[in-house]
């Protein structure tokens, strides 16, 4: 039986990894920033402290995306 290749992909599947790894942290960072804006609109006088907490939350969520970048180099 002779096979006909209709489409093929060459290269490493790890390149898709970052796209997948960015989905979760992207949603997470969006929720953190959005909720902070909501809270700041309610209580403008708390804006400073809320921003600090927002950056902390973003730092933790963002790390997952960056681990996604690292895996591309590790499993290349």
């Amino acid at each position: 039986m002779d096979s006909t290749i209709l489409a093929q992909i060459t290269g490493n599947i790890a390149t898709v990894g970052y796209g997948l790894a960015a989905i979760g942290p992207g949603i997470g960072v969006g929720i953190v920033a959005g909720k902070t804006v909501e809270a700041m609109a309610r209580q403008p006088e708390m804006a400073g402290r809320l921003q600090v907490t927002m950056f902390l939350g973003i730092a933790f969520a963002e790390l997952l995306a960056f681990i996604g970048v690292a895996t591309f180099f590790i499993f290349q």
């Binding site: 960056f66 970048v69 690292a70």
Partner: peptide, 13 residues
Amino acid sequence: VSLALRLLLNMMV
């Protein structure tokens, strides 16, 4: 580990 990785990868990327 996460402190180091966060800084390193931000700058690398």
